[in-house]
Design a protein around this nucleic acid. Sequence first.
DNA 1: TAGATTGTTAATCGATTAACAATC
DNA 2: TAGATTGTTAATCGATTAACAATC
Lengths: 216, 216
Amino acid sequence: MNKKIQEPEEKEISKAVIGRLPRYFRYLAELKDEGVERISSMELSQLMQVTASQIRQDFNNFGGFGQQGYGYNVAYLYGEIGKLLGLDETHRLIVIGAGNLGQALANYANFESRGFLIKGLFDTRKEILGKKVRGIEIMPMEQLETFIAGNDIDIAVLTIPKTEALAVSKRLADCGIRGIWNFAHIDLDLPKSVKVEDVHLSDSLMKLSYAMKREG
Amino acid sequence: MNKKIQEPEEKEISKAVIGRLPRYFRYLAELKDEGVERISSMELSQLMQVTASQIRQDFNNFGGFGQQGYGYNVAYLYGEIGKLLGLDETHRLIVIGAGNLGQALANYANFESRGFLIKGLFDTRKEILGKKVRGIEIMPMEQLETFIAGNDIDIAVLTIPKTEALAVSKRLADCGIRGIWNFAHIDLDLPKSVKVEDVHLSDSLMKLSYAMKREG
DNA sequence: TAGATTGTTAATCGATTAACAATC
DNA sequence: TAGATTGTTAATCGATTAACAATC
């Protein structure tokens, strides 16, 4: 009837801004630990080597967390950015591919402290099934769907060869996984309700190599 | 005497463009393996889900690799992008921090095939010194400088806690390391002749978590 | 030569920086 | 109230897309 009248529609935040949130979060965690109570965009900009303008613009995408004449309360800002990043909720993860990388990620306790709980490991190789990593059992791929449903898993970490990644990612999407942390070196193609975050390690190494070619 | 007259000055390529090169490289590798001989920017754009315009602009940053009326020769383009990324040279790496992640990276044979040769592992923990990973010995930190100098190492992979990372990165810069692949969750501060490529895994996981909060 | 497709210029879009009025 | 510093608008800069002439 009327195309204009809508819900107050959450304005889309740009990738650039979102990409900077974890770094803000990290610096604020440090300031908080040091007992710093308030900080101005100017001070933070010097610490982080970005412009104060960018900091204020970034925060204002979310409505503004500061107070004129005062600046930002470190603990409050830390908390708000944490909430934006979803760190106020816990996530339940499985790791698919219990090779070196998969096991390394499963062993990395720091994720737990942020609410990312690793609940299961999966692999196709019979010889490692049943083995435990930090108390987490390695299970066969046949149990994937049952385990996800029974354990309220919302994120899957993919550390399998790219040849298997597409098929497995489809299975994950089909059984309701909402996020995939993809270490497989391939672009997944899934309905956009399933969020994919890629970590292409070899791409990163190539960028380093590129940079090293330039200037002395 | 004259500020204007200079070497033809390699024009600075934007971060955005460089960030896309590894992905181009990956798709071209695949096309090459499939025996595809030529491809137009239009075809490649459909495959990669980007605009043909962007592809042509990107390649033209480096002088243009195509031919009017024909398109791009896959094998040639693959080779040229590989050269841009420095994959025509071999790199000699050490991994500092032989924990799970460090060992996982050392074990990852795919890097070797691109010319990234892992030559040594270092750790502070006495109990794992001398142990071998894929034939590579774990050495004590005291031997760092000697090993780097004696083995022509140009890249160091940092997989140590952030508390040690700053000090170690300084040592690396001092003994002539030209590139650091940094997995430590801290911003390094080094002379700009030392190139740093960060892989902040927890930042990546937070971005996934952010995305999952929005829409269904 | 005609058709195809690049290389490249121009137009648009988005992100960053600067400036300043609002306000604590 | 005066000073400080945000929130926000305007200006600038850079990246992407569109258009098309050059040319294989």
